[in-house]
Simulated assay, not measured.
Amino acid sequence: MNKKHLAAYVAVAALFGVMGAIVAINKKEPAPVTTTMAPTGGAAHSAVDKFYAQSLNDLQGKPQSLAQWKGKPLLVNFWATWCAPCVQEMPELSHLADEEGGKRFNVVGIGIDSPTNLSEFAEKLKIAYPLYVGGMGGTELSRELGNKQGGLPFTVLIGADGQVIKTYLGKLKFDELRADLAQLKS
């Protein structure tokens, strides 16, 4: 290979390197996919009725009825310890739950993971809201609430009337979430 060819290869490689750097710098994190479910004329969505009919174990292994959260707006976050965006959003979600203190809405998390992994993680991060063990059944529960892609994190905002107000697939944008929460009717 002569020096002209080598210089051309180096120039092309450098050009691709610069283009890659420009793309990486300008790459924006994708916005979460948000959806709303069709209104039911004031009746609870059947998926929400099924949700509230469930009992899941808390992190101490005690069964907890999800019906205890009926009657007040509820933010349900499906997550896993192995899901990087889930782990990234949990401290801010915990801060939001702690700041709210259940006055206008409650926050619960349903872990799609083993009880041991969930417990160790929650202890390390000091999560301020109730966490439940959904296991792989939690994936199906999230699908029933609108998570057609089956991705995580997946968050559902349920109104006091049992209506699914909005769902969020992907890492939460907290400015959007706070705006949605400000619109809640208790």
Rank of each mutant, 00 (worst) to 15 (best):
S119G: 10
P91C: 05
G109K: 02
R143T: 11
G20A: 15
V107L: 04
S94E: 07
Q183W: 06
K72C: 04
K148N: 14
E99M: 06
A11C: 04
H95N: 14
G109T: 05
K3E: 15
D113L: 01
M1H: 13
E140G: 15
F174M: 03
R104G: 12
L118G: 03
L59W: 01
T139H: 11
Y52K: 08
L177C: 03
A14M: 13
A44H: 03
D49G: 12
A8E: 10
I25Q: 10
R104D: 15
Y52A: 06
R104H: 14
V107P: 02
I112M: 05
C83P: 00
D175F: 07
S65P: 09
N147K: 07
T40L: 11
S94F: 05
S46L: 12
G102L: 06
M37P: 09
A179S: 08
T81F: 00
P91A: 09
P39K: 11
P91I: 04
I127T: 00
H5S: 15
A11G: 07
M19K: 10
K50W: 13
K27R: 14
G101E: 04
L93F: 09
L75E: 05
V108K: 08
N147S: 06
I112Y: 04
S114H: 08
A24L: 11
N2M: 10
Q88E: 15
Q149F: 09
A43F: 08
G41M: 02
Y132V: 01
L59P: 00
G138F: 03
G71P: 00
T81K: 01
M1S: 15
I165P: 06
H95R: 15
I165E: 13
S46D: 15
G42P: 00
G159I: 08
Q54V: 12
D58T: 02
F154L: 12
V48Y: 03
L145Q: 04
Y9I: 15
G135Y: 02
A31D: 14
V164K: 06
I22M: 13
M90W: 04
L172N: 01
G162N: 09
K173L: 12
K171D: 09
L75N: 04
G41D: 02
Y129R: 06
A24I: 04
S119T: 13
E123C: 08
C86D: 03
N2T: 06
K72A: 03
L96D: 02
G109R: 02
K50R: 15
V12G: 03
K28D: 14
G102W: 05
G150S: 00
T34E: 12
A31K: 14
L66S: 11
S65G: 10
T35H: 12
C83V: 01
G137Y: 10
D49P: 08
D175G: 06
V156A: 04
K171M: 14
G150Q: 00
C83T: 01
K3T: 14
G41N: 02
V108G: 07
S186N: 13
K3Y: 13
P115T: 02
E100N: 03
A80P: 00
S142R: 01
R104A: 13
G101H: 05
M1Q: 12
T116V: 08
K62Y: 11
Y168W: 08
Y132R: 02
M1W: 09
A43I: 10
T40G: 13
